[in-house]
């Protein structure tokens, strides 16, 4: 009896892995097919702009708020740590480096997943349930080119821009807390910051933002497109999209940081 229980667990594990690999392959193929329409007529520029508005501009407020608080808390925590070594002057460098290399791209990606990614999945899932995707196909409009592609491109364009805003707001907020509240010397703060940050750090941040943007767009559109066409199916797909996209961002963050940056 215990033997068969073990066998069943093994079977479930195997099935889970096979399904996971299958979904990854399916998603990759779907994304590539959608991206294949980038330079093909009909040109989707107008819909990319519409999606940039919905996803990018729509996420701006939350990015500013999270950026500000991230910078502020980093300054507080960093001051506490650095003060123990008498190196408060390094606060600017610490705050800016953490934000530019790591927290800007990752937290920015999380905010976009929560604000825009879940909306993408839910919207496409609902279009599947209500047969709007089929209606598009019957009207000779390819949903991959019309619905999926603009959203993937929009997240890819929007995330680096949002991360840039996040970085600047975070650094400014860190400066306010560090210099005005905690009394770190303003000159030292700025001087250390400009001295310690190189183009290499900045480029790493941009690469991360671009890759994360692509991941979010690809995963969230895929989850919506392949959602089970029921209301529960869409709800489940939305939850799964947020979880899978967040985990993928963290895994990819580690890979990018360790291999390339």
């Amino acid at each position: 009896m215990t033997g068969s229980g073990l066998v069943r667990i093994l079977g479930a594990l195997g099935r889970f892995c096979i399904q996971g690999v299958h979904a990854m392959g399916d998603g990759a193929v779907l994304t590539m097919r959608a991206l294949g329409h980038t330079l093909r007529r009909p040109w989707q520029g107008r819909h990319v702009v519409l999606q940039l508005h919905a996803l990018g501009v729509g996420s701006l407020a939350i990015i500013v708020v999270t950026g500000a608080f991230t910078g502020m808390v980093l300054a507080l925590q960093g001051y506490y740590t650095l003060a123990k070594f008498g190196s408060e002057s390094l606060l600017g460098a610490g705050v800016a480096l953490s934000i530019i290399r790591e927290l800007g791209p990752v937290l920015g990606a999380f905010m976009v997943i929560g604000r825009a990614g879940s909306a993408i999945t839910a919207e496409i899932g609902i279009m599947r349930v209500t047969e709007q995707l089929d209606a598009l196909r019957m009207m000779a409009v390819n949903p991959l080119a019309r619905i999926l592609l603009p959203r993937i491109l929009a997240t890819m364009i929007a995330l680096p821009l949002l991360v840039a805003v996040f970085d600047v707001v975070g650094i400014a907020a860190g400066y306010l807390v560090g210099v005005d509240l905690l009394g770190v010397n303003a000159g030292a703060y700025v001087a250390e910051m400009t001295a310690k940050i190189s183009n290499h750090d900045l480029n790493g941040g941009w690469v991360k933002a671009l890759v994360f943007g692509f991941l979010i767009g690809a995963i969230c559109t895929f989850m919506g497109y392949r959602a089970e066409p029921t209301t529960e199916g869409v709800a489940r797909a939305t939850t799964r999209a947020v979880v899978v996209a967040s985990v993928s961002v963290l895994v990819m963050d580690y890979i990018l940081t360790s291999f390339f940056l």
């Binding site: 609902i126 209500t130 047969e131 709007q132 089929d134 209606a135 598009l136 019957m138």
Partner: peptide, 12 residues
């Protein structure tokens, strides 16, 4: 071709 779907499928 044209198609009228069961739940209309208007683009909302």
């Amino acid at each position: 071709m044209g198609m009228v779907f069961q739940y209309s499928a208007l683009l909302n």
